[in-house]
Simulated assay, not measured.
Amino acid sequence: MILVTGGTGFVGAHLLYQLTINEEKIRAVYRTESSLEKVRNVFSYYTKSTKGTFAKIEWVQADITSVPDMIPVFEGVTRVYHCAALVSFDPKAYIDMRKVNIHGTAIIVNLAIDAKVDKLCFVSSIAAVGDSLHGEVVTEENEWNKNSKNHGYAISKYGAEMEVWRASQEGIDVIVVNPGVILGPGFWDTGSGKMFSQVYNGFKFYTEGVTGFVGVKDVIRAMQQLMDGPHKNERYILVSENKSFKEIFFSIADALHVKKPSIKVKPWQTAIFWRLDKMRSFLTRTAPLITKHSARSAHEETKYSSEKLKKDTAFEFETIEEVIKETSSFFP
């Protein structure tokens, strides 16, 4: 039995579809009935028999931060894909992120140890990889810097990784993947999907910050390959290409056949805007549109290497141009 946490999230939904192809027994955790509709939507991109494919999954309603909820979930489980996470740049969400990302992962690890599962794959993030030194390309060897200006999400994912490595010390084979910004169809109102929606709706602004990008299908393929292979107790950066946000926005605009963003935003402008938005957020008691950390990341230039994955598995990534074109073909 394969267990997938975060099955109603972006990565989890795409992973579940691929797992159903192999006719394996699958159990997935969900929180609310409404979240299941997003999974059905993702399945509809790949198959006309959405109902039949969806029925191959044993869905269990549970909260990963609740031990009583999660104990029965692990019955008969031999492999775990831990995809569940809370993602936010909002400082107000830090406590909740620690609860879900660190405490929730600790519970998953403890129950995996008790159940003596064979292998656990954890979906982390490049946010939890060490900083670039002197502008060099970041690899898995870069050490986490506790003194750097890490944001709450990065801290919580690093803390979650520490829990996963604890599992490796308790006899569980583990794989940690650190994807870059993941692009793919579905979830158009959150995460990277929101970039497609914004560009389609005439978003005018862009920055020239650089980071790593990867297609969701490549993330899933790498996870499955690493779980099915002999690899264990290793972490892998998953990045197809390092691109600027300008390049990504322009490529999305071309693929959607809409006007490209035309206004370059400079660092001093985002510095002003996040401060103004912080005041607006406080007065209206709504989530910020931009934070200090998201403003800074929009201008940073950090490049990542996936050479370790390519060397260990002969893995080949789709180009980001191909990913954007395919993703855009599903845009509603």
Results as ranks from 00 to 15, higher is better:
Ala85Leu: 06
Ala160Val: 00
Ser306Ala: 09
Cys83Lys: 03
Leu36Arg: 03
Ile102Ala: 08
Trp165Gly: 05
Val123Leu: 10
Lys194Ser: 15
Lys292Tyr: 04
His293Ala: 14
Gly191Val: 13
Ser251Cys: 13
Thr207Val: 08
Gly152Glu: 02
Val138Arg: 00
Tyr236Trp: 01
Met279Ile: 13
His293Cys: 04
Arg79Asp: 15
Gly135Asn: 00
Asn145Thr: 11
Val129Asn: 05
Ser306His: 08
Lys119Ser: 00
Ile108Trp: 06
Glu163Val: 05
Glu234Ile: 04
Ser240Ala: 10
Arg275Ser: 09
Ala253Tyr: 00
Asn142Leu: 03
His14Ala: 00
Tyr46Phe: 15
Ile108Glu: 09
Leu283Met: 07
Val29Thr: 12
Ser49Phe: 13
Gly180Met: 02
Ile220Asp: 03
Ser294Gln: 08
Asp69Glu: 10
Val177Met: 04
Gly152Leu: 03
Ser35Pro: 02
Thr65Leu: 11
Thr105Ala: 06
Lys311Gly: 01
Arg166Met: 01
Glu37Lys: 11
Ser132Gly: 03
Asn242Asp: 03
Leu183Lys: 09
Met70Asp: 04
Asp114Arg: 00
His231Phe: 12
Leu238Phe: 06
Ile272Thr: 14
Ala55Gly: 06
Tyr153Ala: 07
Met223Leu: 07
Ser240Gln: 04
Arg98Asp: 14
Phe317Trp: 02
Lys157Asp: 09
Pro267Ile: 07
Ser44Ala: 15
Phe317Gln: 00
Ala115Gln: 01
Ile155Asp: 13
Pro267Val: 12
Glu322Arg: 03
Tyr158Pro: 00
Ser125Met: 02
Thr53Ile: 14
Ala62Phe: 02
Gly184Phe: 05
Arg296Met: 09
Asn41Glu: 15
Phe250Lys: 11
Asn22Met: 14
Gly130Lys: 04
Trp188Met: 11
Tyr30Phe: 12
Glu301Cys: 14
Leu3Met: 11
Glu241Arg: 00
Phe54Lys: 07
Phe89Arg: 11
Lys56Cys: 11
Pro230Trp: 13
Gln225Val: 10
Ile220His: 00
Glu143Pro: 06
Asp189Arg: 14
Phe205Trp: 12
Val42Ile: 10
Asn150Thr: 05
Pro72Met: 02
Trp268Asp: 13
Ile95His: 12
Tyr200Met: 13
Phe196Val: 15
Phe43Trp: 05
Tyr206Gln: 11
Phe122Leu: 12
His134Tyr: 05
Phe203Pro: 05
Val87Gly: 06
Glu300Ser: 09
Phe10Lys: 06
Arg285Ser: 12
Leu36Asp: 04
Phe245Pro: 01
Met70Gln: 04
Leu15Phe: 06
Phe273Met: 13
Lys232Glu: 12
Lys232Cys: 07
Ser66Gly: 10
Lys308Pro: 10
Gly212Asp: 08
His299Val: 08
Lys51Trp: 07
Gly202Pro: 08
Val87Thr: 12
Ser132Tyr: 09
Tyr206Ala: 13
Asn150Phe: 07
Ala255Ser: 15
Gly215His: 01
Gly229Glu: 12
Glu247Tyr: 10
Ala127Val: 07
Arg280Thr: 10
Ile57Arg: 00
Arg235Phe: 06
Phe330Met: 14
Lys243Glu: 09
Thr50Cys: 10
Pro288Val: 09
Ala287His: 14
Val219Glu: 02
Phe249Gly: 01
Thr319Ile: 11
